[in-house]
Design a protein around this nucleic acid. Structure first.
Lengths: 332, 332
DNA sequence: TTACTTTCAGAATACGTATTCTCAATTTAT
DNA sequence: ATAAATTGAGAATACGTATTCTGAAAGTAA
């Protein structure tokens, strides 16, 4: 490992003290102009860059944000990471990335690792509720993104509203028998069901198919859906709302493999509005991902700079339904 | 910002010197067993974690690897990042991620930022040749992944071979008129053309369509292809080889929108074998991505630990052709 | 002139850790 | 028993930076 150039070396070359170099770099006005010029010239010449590690130690702030996502398979989370990296950088922060793979134990290990690196704060897509308690007790601010949780600052869409949008759209198109693929305790489903209830439609008849969420790997998702679909000779529903776009995509493929048409026989609405749904013409609930990222970073940085009251902040953004081919069909 | 617990604090609580605590943590044998036990007990109790920042400063190694990718849109690069994160962590390293967005200026800024963070080494998907010269002069090891470049250690597939595989497959299926969508100076194309030449097929008749590569955003890719396709009343080719799966996907969609069938009228082979091609049944050149990641990390870490001779290392792995529906058709 | 600010910049210190140096206590060799 | 070697652990230092402390030089007010 070659030796890096240090401030001390700059000081020697410019014939000033190391403190003066520091002052020049940090724009301290208490330094004579020509001296400053001399120092800057040397810095330029040798291509000196300050050592962020030493700064971190001294200032007790690393300008590092830990980002933990539950998976990278679903392109939705990739977009999230991509925007986080971009916006954080523009705000003077770097991100350090971990994939918890829906595994709470790995998630917690990753958080420990974050702490070791002296991150200033953390943005997390929680794997579940397993670590929430501990997360809220961390010595650094943590923001939950994508999921609203009571013990942490959160930024997410209104999932209830999202479910309502899907249900309302199906009802308006004349559907009367429904299916939902996803976790039944998810707010999306509560919203979905609540609208059916309001319209006096039989909520208990809704087919709810749960997938064990180890990963959104297409093949596993396909298998999971297939296992449920296999029980039906003919489907007792005319529309399906799914918890994400990968599920929607595989669902549509399975439906079509049965010789049925989407949307003529069965309509499908997905979730996240990733490019998968755009490419494939799948209707999907859109999440304002850039807004979510900006908002959560703002919130986190305000926390880091201790500009906020200690009350937990929960921000909900508006979802919208993007109607595309997969649900663009009116029944009867 | 709450105060973190330091080694000194542990020392005070355990009634030993700070040096002893350090020795216990680092497994130095020169420490009495019961003393060590006492120290470990205190560490356990208060949940002390060592400060990696201070270690970095002291040891002059950060256990950080910079990862710069040229984009996150193509899922291929996401897989790369995901595996890099995973494997690096298992080897005791963390990654710090940057997306250069095919922009050499941003790429160089990111590299500077990496240096600031005292990364031990860097794995890069170069945006082009613009920064290669400077990259090779960095005070830390750099490995180019995905692309073989002469000035850096590289790990990539044999792109020439990949192009040959595609061409051979088309020829075997009876095709005699070809198209290629991608950069014409790419080795994939050279390999592709070389096989045609060997079979006395008219290389100069191959339709080469270049896309300006600002991003692999589906919409932009679609527009780019469309602009080229628009010039033809009927296509003067029966098969298309594309530089990646996104291009292949959009290409197929455009062909089908013209009322033509894939593969019956036109066969398509993509590149990268991402899940896009798996889902859509697109034939594609498979890259052994896990191997590439393992190999490049191994190489990088060996460099970091200065275990290698200074000669530039260039590792080429074998591509394979995954034949799926989009090229599974024999002409005549 | 003398006393009092103000400006500038060097010396010294601290951040948390690893490590070298040092020396007391103990063991081994003679 | 005495000297020499070994062991164990505290004190001190260094990593690169930011900052406080300090004091010299220069300027201002009387």
């Amino acid at each position: 490992m070659k030796k890096r150039i240090t401030m001390k070396e700059i000081a020697r070359l410019a014939n000033v003290s190391q403190a003066t170099v520091s002052r020049v770099i940090n724009g301290n006005p208490d330094v004579n102009e020509e001296l400053a010029a001399r120092v800057l010239k040397v810095i330029e010449e040798v291509g000196y860059v300050p050592n962020q590690t030493a700064q971190t130690l001294k200032r007790n702030q690393s300008k590092l944000i830990g980002v933990s996502v539950s998976e990278m398979y679903n392109p939705y989370f990739v977009e999230l990471v991509d925007h986080l990296e971009d916006k954080a950088r523009k705000l003077g922060y770097n991100i350090i990335l971990h994939n918890s793979k829906h595994n709470p134990i790995l998630e917690w290990e990753n958080i420990q690792n974050f702490l070791t690196r002296q991150i200033d704060g953390c943005i997390i897509v929680p794997t579940g509720s397993y670590n929430l308690e501990r997360l809220s007790k961390l010595p650094i601010p943590v923001v939950s993104i994508t999921q609203t949780v009571s013990s942490l600052d959160s930024v997410a869409i209104d999932h209830m509203k999202a479910g309502k949008l899907a249900a309302a759209s199906f009802i308006k198109a004349g559907h009367t028998s429904f299916a939902y693929i996803g976790k039944s305790d998810d707010e999306k489903y509560l919203g979905f069901a609540s609208v059916l209830y309001e319209h006096q439609l039989p909520v208990s008849d809704v087919r709810v198919f749960e997938l064990e969420q180890t990963s959104n790997d297409n093949f596993l998702v396909r298998q999971g859906i297939e296992r449920h679909f296999r029980q039906f000779e003919t489907f007792p529903f005319t529309c399906v709302f799914t918890e994400n776009d990968i599920v929607a995509l595989e669902c549509i493929k399975l439906i079509e493999e049965r010789g049925l048409k989407v949307p003529e026989d069965i309509s499908v609405i997905g979730f996240d509005d990733t490019y998968l749904s755009k490419i494939m013409g799948i209707s999907s609930i859109h999440q304002p991902i850039e807004d979510m990222v900006s908002t959560s970073l703002e919130l986190l940085i305000n926390r880091i700079e201790e500009k906020l009251s200690p009350d937990i902040v929960s921000i909900q953004l508006e979802p919208t339904l993007m109607t595309r081919k997969s649900s663009n069909h009116r029944r009867i």
